[in-house]
């Protein structure tokens, strides 16, 4: 249980696939025009991640090393097709608004990266949990970017109007340029927070050294 929580924290915060590892930029930029789309995209990718990790881990001893990438892609695209058909059947409006980005989950680098770096080397259960953790991390990042873009660019959150009729939305943030700018600022904020941790340690070390130096001087 403790290991499970640790893996989750690793995927969502410390080693977030989008904000820290900087993978999977295309869907992060393209599907974050509204929070609803972001959640849909994130969950679809999470489902694919869990099952592809699970099956690649199950088959890891049977797949020859030389053709592993091709084998991974076939497994991943199989699950993507299943998710695509399910979404077409049950959440048609979401399927339409995400459009071509659902089949493009196949070439999402996060999924192939986790297959190669984790699932092909670890046991079945931890691999499935890794898929869940990384998928949730991806979803979290998408929601973060989409929240900024939807509130600033459209004045709404999850379709609910926040500022009333008088608000003139900054359309730029819904446009492609706004995607690059918002993601840039969000990742800068993440780097700032990570730097703060390092800065604190460095300051503590410095002040300790200074104290010691002062002590030596007084002696």
């Amino acid at each position: 249980m403790k290991g499970f929580l640790k893996q989750l924290k690793e995927g969502i915060l410390d080693n977030n696939p989008t904000l820290v590892q900087l993978l999977g930029m295309c869907p992060t930029l393209a599907t974050t025009t509204s929070v609803k789309n972001a959640i849909g995209m994130g969950l679809a990718a999470t489902v694919v991640l869990i099952f592809s990790n699970l099956f690649i881990s199950l088959l890891r001893k049977f797949i020859p090393k030389q053709v592993r990438i091709a084998a991974f892609i076939v497994i991943i695209s199989g699950f993507v097709t299943m998710v695509e058909l399910l979404m077409k059947a049950f959440v048609y409006s979401l399927y339409q608004s995400l459009g071509i980005f659902i089949p493009l989950i196949v070439v999402n680098c996060i999924i192939l990266a986790r297959a190669e770096a984790y699932a092909s080397k670890n046991k079945v259960l931890p691999s499935a949990v890794d898929g869940l953790a990384m998928g949730l991390g991806f979803t979290f990042a998408l929601i973060l970017v989409a929240t900024v873009r939807e509130i600033v660019g459209n004045g709404t959150f999850m379709g609910l109007s926040l500022f009333g009729d008088g608000y003139a939305p900054a359309l730029l943030f819904i446009m492609p340029a706004g995607a690059f700018l918002t993601l840039g600022f969000v990742i800068a904020a993440v780097q700032k927070i990570r730097n703060m941790g390092q800065d604190k340690e460095r300051m503590e070390k410095l002040s300790k050294l200074e104290e010691e130096a002062e002590k030596e001087e007084t002696v």
Partner: peptide
């Protein structure tokens, strides 16, 4: 650029400005 923007973020912002031109 400021330390937090170094590397990837400033690259994204430059891409955003180029995207504005292409818009």
């Amino acid at each position: 650029p400021p330390r937090a923007f170094r590397g990837f973020p400033i690259t994204l912002i430059a891409a955003g400005l180029l995207a504005m031109a292409f818009a």
